[in-house]
Amino acid sequence: MRRPVVMGNWKLNGSKTMVTELLTGLNAELEGVAGVDVAVAPPALYLDLAERLIKEGGNKIILGAQNTDVNNSGAFTGDVSPQMLKDFGATHIIIGHSERREYHHESDEFVAQKFAFLKENGLTPVLCIGESEAQNEAGETLAVCARQLDAVIKTQGVEALNDAIIAYEPIWAIGTGKAATAEQAQSIHASIRAHIAKESEAVAKNVIIQYGGSVKAENAAELFAQPDIDGALVGGAALDAKGFAAIAKAAAAAKA
């Protein structure tokens, strides 16, 4: 039985005050919640503060991060390595987010390289895949998702997806207020799982596939009721403790 994961991607948002208030609020809101893994990915500068607040709260929130380099040390100014992330207790690392692919020109092959290096360092990759609005309108959704997945599968084998997380994020629904219907999202998730099953039914059955794309408390329960949606990668709604906790609680209830 797959255990849902609800992860908050804070993106380029934060201050010491905000991080303290948000995690203090989350610790309170998630008291006693079971059946779902809850993770947060603050900006790297706030990993130390987040680690301390999570430990103080005692609710076992998973600490994540938003990116990684493909080196653990050396002359790579401005980058953050997997070993540095581990040193601050981060375990779940987002890679391949559409914003990294677009603004930093990260290719499928480079994202796959990051995936492999995270696995080598004992960390959990959260691999983002998804199509643009133009690709969606052209009927290319499944082809785009398959291509992004195959960059990993064809270089590392399908078993590399074990102990990893896939986050399907239709780019046209990120931060736009638009969202796929629960039925549309389920159809894509089922197709992603079927694509993986061509290589291994066992891997496909067990891999966690999150949905990301304007997930909020109002639509979370309907999304999580779908059989192939295993939680969410949450953007803007993750910056509000009560709202984000409501999404996590919806995941726990739907999969109970």
Rank of each mutant, 00 (worst) to 15 (best):
N9D: 14
I166M: 08
M84I: 14
D87N: 11
N136H: 09
S15F: 12
I188Y: 03
P125T: 15
I61R: 01
K60P: 05
D150N: 13
D240T: 04
H97Q: 10
K255S: 10
A238R: 06
F115M: 00
S191F: 02
L161Q: 13
R52P: 12
A44P: 03
A185D: 10
P42R: 08
Y168R: 04
D150L: 07
E21Q: 15
F76T: 02
L53T: 12
I62Y: 02
E102H: 10
G212L: 00
V6D: 07
G25N: 04
A112Y: 10
K11H: 10
A250G: 13
L49N: 06
S15I: 12
I196L: 07
A256V: 13
V203R: 02
E201Q: 07
E140I: 14
A179W: 01
K198F: 04
L22A: 05
V70F: 01
E131W: 07
A164S: 15
Q83K: 15
N9L: 15
G235D: 05
G8T: 13
M18W: 03
A221S: 10
E133D: 12
D87V: 10
A164V: 14
I174R: 04
G35S: 08
T124Y: 03
Y168H: 11
E199L: 00
K205S: 12
I171Y: 09
L26H: 06
G32A: 10
H97K: 11
Q156E: 10
I229A: 07
G236F: 07
R2A: 06
A90V: 12
E199P: 00
I61Y: 00
N13A: 08
A160I: 14
P43H: 13
S98V: 13
V111P: 03
D37K: 12
R52C: 07
D37E: 13
A253H: 09
W172N: 11
A90G: 09
V152R: 01
V5K: 08
L49H: 01
K86I: 04
F224R: 03
V5A: 06
H104L: 13
R52Y: 05
L223W: 02
G14Y: 14
D150T: 09
A252S: 11
H195F: 14
A254H: 02
A225Y: 07
V70T: 15
W172P: 11
T17I: 11
Q113S: 02
A146F: 13
T17A: 13
G58P: 02
R3P: 09
N206R: 06
V234W: 00
T20H: 15
A248F: 01
A254P: 00
T77C: 00
R3W: 07
E218K: 13
L85A: 06
V33R: 01
E51D: 10
N67D: 09
V19N: 05
G8M: 04
T91F: 00
Q135N: 03
Q226I: 09
H195G: 14
A173S: 11
K154V: 15
Q186S: 05
I93V: 15
F115T: 08
G35E: 05
